[in-house]
Design a protein around this nucleic acid. Structure first.
Length: 263
DNA sequence: AAGACTGTCAACCGCGGAGAC
DNA sequence: TGTCTCCGCGGTTGACAGTCT
C-alpha cells in the first residue's frame, strides 16, 4: 500500500516563498507557537503543505538562526563532527548554534568537500587520499580532523596557514566564536559529553518554550529578543511584511529596536 | 555583449522512525 | 500486532547569480 501524500497536492503551491507567505507563517507561529505542522497551512491561510511550512520555518524564518557563511571555527567543527557522525546533518547542526542541517549540508557539499579533496583528504572517510602528499601539504589541524581528532590528548590547532575562508577577516564576534569553539574542541571531557548527549545543546530555551501543551508555554522567546533578527533580514525585512500582523505592544518593541539600530 | 559554464542555496521528494489507535 | 499519521532527515533538484570565454 502506497504512502499517502503529506498533503493534498491539488491547490498546493510550490517554489520560492513570497514575503506575504512568510509574513503569514511568522504571524501564525508568533501567535500560536509551533503546533501540528499539517494544520499550519490551513490555519495560517497558506496554500502550502505542512512540510513546506516546517522547512521554511526551520531553515529560514526561525528567530534563532545565524546568517552568513560559517566561520572558520564552525567549519572546523563541522569537519570534526562529520568525521565522527558522517552525513547526519541534523546531529551536526544540533552542535552548531543557529545553524540548520540544510545550511550545513549545503556548505559541506559546496565548500568543505572541495576543500578537503583539494587537501587530499577523502571527504567521506576523512582518510588521506594520498598519505604522502597529504602529510606534506595538509595543515596539521586538518589531518587531525580525520578519524583521529578529538581522541585522547588531541586538540584542534588553528595555524596561520589555515584553510582560506571567506571569513578570514572575521569580526571580533567571530574571533570570540572561534575561541569559544576552540575551547570546546580542546576540552576532551566536554566534547565527550557532547557526543554522548543526544539532546541538542542549542535552542534550549526555545525548545523548552515550545514543548508544553499549554499554549502559553508555546510562546516564542521574548519579542525583544527575537524581533531584532527580523530587522536584520535584508531579503524580506519586516517592512516588506507590513506591520499589520503585529500587536501594538509588538510594534512598540519593534519601534524601539529600530531606534536602537539606527543609533 | 552574449552565451556557456559553474557555484550556491532554497526548496522539494521520498523514506524511515515514532507514536497513536 | 498491524495500520495509519505525522514529523524529521538526508539526498537531490532547479533557479538564480556570478564568472569565464
Amino acid at each position: 500500500m502506497g504512502r499517502q501524500p503529506c498533503c493534498d497536492k491539488l491547490g498546493v503551491k510550490k517554489g520560492p516563498w513570497t514575503a506575504e507567505e512568510d509574513k503569514k507563517l511568522i504571524n501564525f507561529i508568533l501567535t500560536n507557537g509551533q503546533c501540528c505542522w499539517r494544520a499550519v497551512p490551513k490555519l495560517a491561510g497558506l496554500r502550502r503543505c505542512g512540510k513546506s511550512c516546517r522547512l521554511r520555518w526551520t531553515n529560514y524564518l526561525r528567530p534563532d538562526l545565524k546568517r552568513g557563511l560559517l566561520s572558520e571555527a564552525e567549519e572546523q567543527l563541522v569537519i570534526d563532527l562529520h568525521a565522527r557522525l558522517g552525513n547526519r546533518w541534523s546531529k551536526i547542526a544540533a552542535r552548531l548554534p543557529g545553524r540548520t542541517d540544510n545550511e550545513i549540508k549545503n556548505h559541506w557539499n559546496t565548500h568543505i568537500k572541495k576543500k578537503l579533496l583539494k587537501m587530499g583528504i577523502d571527504p567521506v572517510t576523512h582518510e588521506p587520499l594520498n598519505k604522502e602528499a597529504v602529510s606534506e601539504e595538509t595543515p596539521s589541524h586538518l589531518q587531525q580532523s580525520g578519524n583521529h581528532c578529538l581522541q585522547e590528548n588531541d586538540s584542534v590547532i588553528h595555524s596561520e596557514e589555515n584553510l582560506s575562508s571567506p571569513t578570514e577577516n572575521c569580526s571580533s564576534t567571530d574571533d570570540h566564536d572561534s575561541l569559544l569553539l576552540d575551547n570546546i574542541c580542546n576540552n576532551e571531557s566536554l566534547m565527550n559529553s557532547l557526543w554522548i548527549d543526544e539532546a541538542p545543546l542549542v535552542n534550549v530555551s526555545w525548545e523548552n518554550q515550545t514543548n508544553g501543551d499549554n499554549i502559553d508555554h508555546l510562546r516564542l522567546p521574548s519579542l525583544e529578543d527575537n524581533f531584532s533578527w527580523l530587522l536584520d533580514c535584508q531579503d524580506f525585512g519586516i517592512h516588506d511584511f507590513g506591520y499589520d500582523c503585529f500587536s501594538d505592544g509588538e510594534l512598540n518593541v519593534l519601534s524601539s529596536l529600530e531606534m536602537g539600530e539606527k543609533h
